[in-house]
Amino acid sequence: MRLRAVVRSGLAALATATVLIAGPVAQAAFADPALDDAKARLTAIEQQQSEIGEEWAEVKLQLAQGKAKVETLNADIAAQQLKVDALRTQAQQVAVSRFQNRGVDITIQLVTSSDPDGFLSDMSTMGKVDQNMNSLLQEFQAQQADLADLQRAAHDQLTAITAEEQQLASLKSQIDEKIREAQALVDQLTEQERQRLNAEEAASDEVVGDGEALIDDSGPADERALRAVKYAVSKVPTGQYVWGAEGPNEFDCSGLMLAAYRSVGVSLPHSSRAQSTLGRPVARDQLKPGDLLFFYSPIHHVGMYMGNGLFVHARNPRNDLEITKLSSYPAYQGARRILG
């Protein structure tokens, strides 16, 4: 059972009431060491998921770049092959011409020539042909070597691509195992514990309500950045967290940022770490809607600032997409402004 579905069912009110009772007496009365341990273990598992997921995203990005490089190399190889073939044809033509005159004494050719002066002129020209032939052969060898270098580079790149594809498959298996591990842990909880777990998370950092109404569009934020925020927020009610997804209804954290900015004509890489190098840095007290927020060290999570101390993000497979208080979310590392 998805925990998000539980908390948004008719049972959510009872769970919320449990965590909203004030005072130390209430805290003691509802203390549950088993649930606290489960929460700690879930947090650790989800942190591991996120770290593996970021590594997966970076390898996938490298794989895409590698495939693009192979396409470029193949085009270069085709062009180089044309140069080599043309030089080979020229060399063959010169070699045939020289072969046809081999074995004929130059004195006999001079005596029998109907135009001795022209023959001597041709001999001078043939000397130049020999020089040109040597130059032609040297050029052919150089171009042939360049072709071989390109072919080796393409082979090496294809070998790297094969290794990256295997690494992706391995990382995906690790991610799937962490998801199963988290779900198995949740399944071991009682119904009441699952309700309390969701309600405590919602009370501590999740914001529920009309997402678009929570966006601060009163300031000087870039118009396209505001549209990107609205896109991301519009996906919160029904969007699901899926590793490697970038829309239209399934996203991971960097995939949601990619899709939001893609909707306004801006291209981002599908990696939170790669996204953290784009745009320009922004101080926390200068944040505007549309700024990208980064978490953990090394970075493996990203969200989008909405204004009013809130941000929207694809949190994890257990929580899907949500709007969260920035002040309550751990390990904030900084922000980057993509537009404006």
Rank of each mutant, 00 (worst) to 15 (best):
A13Y: 06
A15G: 14
G23K: 03
Q27C: 01
A29C: 06
A40S: 11
I52G: 04
E55H: 13
L63K: 05
I77D: 05
Q81G: 13
Q81L: 10
L82K: 15
K83M: 11
L87S: 12
T89K: 11
V111W: 12
T112W: 02
S113G: 04
P116I: 07
P116A: 06
S121K: 12
G127E: 10
S135Q: 14
Q144Y: 09
R152N: 15
L158A: 14
I161L: 07
Q166F: 11
L171E: 08
I175Q: 10
D176A: 07
Q183K: 13
E191I: 07
Q192H: 11
R196G: 01
N198A: 11
A199H: 02
E200P: 00
D205P: 00
E206W: 06
D210S: 10
D222C: 02
V233K: 03
A245N: 08
N249L: 07
E250S: 10
D252L: 03
L258N: 02
R262P: 02
P269V: 13
R273S: 15
R273W: 14
A274W: 06
G279W: 04
V282P: 04
A283S: 15
K288M: 13
P289Q: 05
I299M: 04
M306I: 02
A314H: 00
L326A: 09
L326V: 08
S327G: 09
R336Y: 07
G340M: 08
